[in-house]
Simulated assay, not measured.
Amino acid sequence: MFPDEMYAVVPDALDGETCERLINGFAKDMDDGGLVQGQSATHIRQSKITWFNEEQEPAVSRRITDLVADVNRNWFDFSLTDFAEDAQIACYVGDQRGHYDWHSDIGSSEVARRRKMTLVIQLSEPDQYEGGLLQLNPAGHFIDAPMERGTAIFFPSFVLHRVAPTTAGLRYSLTQWVHGNPFR
């Protein structure tokens, strides 16, 4: 793990076989990705998404739980209580200039305001797409997340981040939010 200011990186959080299985298992059932509360704005977000839960992917869910516990214990020390939302798999399509502009993951809904930690795992191989960088802006300077397949990046859900426009290929990622009492 390579902690830095406001994020932590875990290489090989998922193996390549698991990443490929998630892509192949969920890519066919994707819908247009929107914003909170069912809103759509393609100038802000252009992606395809689907969701999975612990019953569908028990081994992946256990791995995520273990990763969150370890990273939180060793880095963030947030008061976390649960996973109130299913995990999301997103696809950013190059010929559609898939992207998600600058945003934070804390929202106004009952569930979104309880988001405390965001976890993103890179599912695609970096040579399968161009552009599409996950970028963080935790303190006024951009950080490019690692692109290696299976790498996880953790950050507080209030940190501004984006997926830069994907210019070619398909970029798949897994996102999981971890919840607790709202930040004060």
Rank of each mutant, 00 (worst) to 15 (best):
N74T: 13
H43P: 03
R45F: 07
H103S: 03
T81N: 02
N181G: 01
Q122C: 04
V163Q: 00
G132V: 08
E85V: 11
R45G: 06
G33P: 01
F76D: 06
V159G: 00
L119A: 11
L22I: 10
S47V: 00
G169L: 05
L170A: 11
Y129L: 06
T50L: 03
A168G: 12
S108E: 15
P156Y: 05
V36G: 14
L22M: 12
F76P: 02
Y129N: 10
S47D: 15
F78E: 13
E125C: 11
T42C: 00
D82L: 00
R115H: 14
D70G: 09
T65K: 14
E55T: 02
L80D: 07
R97P: 01
H161C: 09
P146D: 05
H141E: 14
S109W: 04
V60L: 01
I121W: 02
P156Q: 04
S157Q: 13
A27D: 05
S109R: 04
D101G: 04
D77L: 11
A90E: 05
K116F: 13
L136A: 03
G131E: 05
W75T: 02
P3I: 06
S61G: 05
Q39K: 15
P11G: 05
L80K: 04
P126N: 13
D127I: 10
S109A: 14
I121G: 11
E20M: 13
P11L: 06
T167K: 12
D32G: 04
A164G: 02
E57T: 02
F142S: 01
G140Q: 04
D82H: 02
F142C: 02
D32V: 14
Y92L: 04
D82T: 09
K116T: 12
D15I: 07
T167A: 09
L119H: 09
H179A: 01
G140K: 02
G34L: 11
M117R: 01
P11H: 08
Q56Y: 02
Q39R: 03
V36Q: 14
R45A: 10
D127E: 15
A84V: 01
I121V: 15
A152Y: 04
I89C: 07
T118P: 07
A168P: 01
L136T: 05
N72I: 01
D144A: 07
A168E: 07
L22F: 10
F142L: 09
R73T: 13
T42P: 00
I89G: 08
Y92P: 10
G169N: 11
L134Y: 03
D66K: 06
G150A: 14
R21P: 03
R184S: 13
Q96Y: 08
S104P: 06
T50Q: 02
S79Q: 03
Q128M: 13
N53Y: 01
T167R: 13
L22D: 10
D29Y: 04
